[in-house]
């Protein structure tokens, strides 16, 4: 981290770099500029995860003409691809360094790709393809699912944590705050709160799992978003978190994205 980031900053290829600084013994995401090259630390694997691309997006919005560098994990790189595709960040304005996740973190996250395409630091750990929670849900009779979901949704305290931490939630106006669609002053909120968010995650969720980790009520949100995403993949053959393609919901028309079968 020390040499590569220092080089990028000193050569002026980036105006600022989002990496980590140890604060009270924990790595903490920090914006480094040319003036801070002295305090850059050497890279070592760590397990703390942050929505760094969300921090990057906030920085980039405030400084539209600046170029930023960022140190990303596999999931964060996927979110970057999505932000590029949804025209939220410009690929020319972002320089990416990649780090691999520790193997135990990859197991903990059940991460399908715990390393970025461009790996600068660390060794790629083994991916996990199966989600236990989704397996449990698919094994359940369809008639039991509504009660299962409602049993989880009723713990919701409407903190908006899932949305606020989500690296691909970039809208400035949010449907979840639409007073007619989702009435305010009701706890737990309407089930549509979660389903509306699920609709928005379709073709967008990069399966980082931060939402579920943040949720104070331990609602298994990741299984929901994972499934809606696999629906999009199944119906439209569109895959999220890869550099190319566009979500079928971003464009009007396009025969190629119509689901196959009887119309």
């Amino acid at each position: 981290m020390k040499t590569k980031v220092r080089q990028l900053l000193e050569e002026g290829r980036v105006d600022a770099f989002i990496a980590y600084k140890t604060v009270h013994g924990l790595p903490f995401p920090t914006v480094f500029t040319k003036a801070d090259v002295g305090v850059l630390e050497t890279w070592q694997p760590f397990k703390a995860r942050y929505p760094v691309t969300k921090l990057l997006l906030a920085q980039a919005r405030q400084n539209p003409d600046k170029t930023f560098g960022v140190l990303v994990r596999g999931c964060e790189e996927r979110s970057l691809y999505e932000l590029f595709k949804w025209n939220q960040l410009h690929p020319d304005k972002v320089v990416v360094l990649g780090q691999a996740c520790p193997q135990d973190l990859a197991f903990y996250c059940e991460c399908p790709k715990p390393y970025p395409d461009h790996l600068d630091y660390g060794e790629a750990p083994k991916p996990v393809q199966e989600s236990r929670r989704l397996g449990e849900l698919h094994g359940m009779p369809e008639t039991d699912r509504l009660a299962w979901w409602l049993g989880h949704f009723n713990r919701c305290i409407r903190c908006y944590g899932c949305r606020d931490v989500c690296p691909v939630c970039f809208c400035t106006e949010c449907s979840l705050e639409h007073k007619e669609l989702i009435p305010t002053g009701k706890l737990p909120p309407d089930t549509s709160f979660h389903l509306v968010r699920a609709v928005h995650m379709a073709g967008r969720c990069i399966d980082c799992g931060l939402c579920e980790e943040t949720c104070p009520s331990h609602i298994p949100l990741r299984a929901l978003y994972k499934h809606v995403n696999s629906l999009v993949e199944g119906i439209f053959q569109y895959k999220t978190g890869v550099p190319d393609g566009k979500s079928p919901f971003t464009m009007l028309g396009e025969e190629s994205f119509l689901p196959t079968g009887v119309r």
Partner: peptide, 19 residues
């Protein structure tokens, strides 16, 4: 076209939610 895309998706979503 958009209707077809969205509604196909929403049907599968409510199925997954147990509806």
């Amino acid at each position: 076209y958009m209707t077809l895309k969205r509604m196909k998706f929403v049907q599968e979503l409510i199925r997954f939610a147990g509806y």
